[in-house]
Design a protein around this nucleic acid. Structure first.
Lengths: 210, 210
DNA sequence: CCAAGGTCTGGACGGTCGTCAAGAGTCTCT
DNA sequence: AGAGACTCTTGACGACCGTCCAGACCTTGG
């Protein structure tokens, strides 16, 4: 009995906890949508609430304060931000195939998720001024570096070569390339994504040594 | 008489204009100092005034509004931001010398002007959300690209090689490298500048083809 | 069916923001 | 010396910010 009761209570408690966590996640989605649209500097709690189906008061029911909300956003953002190129890596049978698909995937996400990427760079930069997100941002950046490393390592393997630069450098180069393309894409330059797609193979070839 | 008077008036008028422009520049310096410290999101006009020797009201005497001030800041920033590597380019007699000095100069400015560089990336990113600075930011970015191109072109010349990637790509790569180093440097990683200095020659060698 | 607790609303608070204007202070020219 | 233009301070304004709270709403267990 007691056991059954306890199990029930746990189930309920877990359900409540899950419900609580679900709503937090839902509100974080609204917050991320707002952030992607307005940027960190202009995003207010009232604006976030208006982009959700709740009133502004509820944010303080689910989050202790603004920093708590934004930290949760950054962490939740990680899952979206670390876009997986793993499938492309796993599928590719030749170096040429990998470099083609990887370049196409970068160009595609540049076109499709430009505002999301813009937000990522905004948050990463914000972490240079604000201590609070720094740890989470650095963790995401580390994960992104690993993601790129997987691509480069597999590419080197398929090309019967070895990495010519440290993985941190490879990531920095490809990230710089992507960021520049994002800048141009959002400035209205139509060819930005296509040029990115053309540049990626050249860079990929240069970060490995035959 | 009339001519003398006119000349005098012009002189005065010019002096007043110059005085006006000088004060604008002086206030812009205070604004840039504040921006470098707090970031775009946190910088207010009152804070800028407090970092100057004037009261907050004077800002609206010299600038129409906040956007006017910030635009002026960005434009004035260009002269500081487009750090000249020209001297290094002009002095270098061999490719090895150029790559050594260029790498050392990048590491040096990373160490010395980290907050200024942090501000640049903040403003550049802000321009992705706000139309107002976009044109000026893109202009600065173009100038930075040219600056890097000078280095790369001279390096290729000294190495009896030719550029292997478009100059926009070369800039994107080196900028990405620098930004990553800035991230780590400001996160307290002591070795960031040294690692940048080591990575730059490798990248430089790879953006030219023998 | 009712008490209890979880959920949400809407308004109020103190503070800061950008902006503005009235007036004091300063300089210049006649 | 005094008028007039230029420069700067100070305080106020409405708007918006993050935060908090009293109470309505809703679900659920007994």
């Amino acid at each position: 009995m007691t056991e059954a009761k306890e199990r029930a209570r746990d189930r309920i408690s877990r359900r409540q906890v899950d419900k609580f966590a679900d709503r937090r996640a839902q509100l974080a989605v609204s917050a991320l949508r707002t952030l992607a649209e307005l940027g960190y500097a202009r995003t207010s709690l009232r604006e976030i609430a208006q982009n959700s189906e709740f009133s502004h008061g509820v944010l303080h029911y689910y989050f202790a304060d603004k920093v708590d909300l934004l930290t949760h956003c950054v962490r939740q953002f990680e899952e979206v931000c670390v876009t997986r190129y793993d499938e492309i890596v796993a599928r590719a049978r030749t170096a040429a195939e990998l470099e083609r698909d990887f370049a196409a995937a970068m160009a595609a996400t540049l076109r499709a998720d430009a505002k999301m990427h813009r937000l990522w760079y905004d948050l990463r930069n914000q972490s240079l001024f604000e201590e609070s997100f720094r740890a989470d941002v650095l963790e995401i950046d580390r994960r992104r570096e690993e993601m790129i490393h997987h691509v480069v390592a597999r590419y080197a393997e398929l090309a019967a070569a070895s990495a010519a630069v440290p993985q941190a450098v490879a990531y920095a180069l490809l990230d710089g390339l992507f960021q520049q393309a994002l800048l141009r894409h959002l400035a209205g330059e139509e060819a930005a994504a296509a040029e990115l797609e053309r540049a990626v193979p050249a860079v990929l070839a240069r970060v490995v040594a035959v």
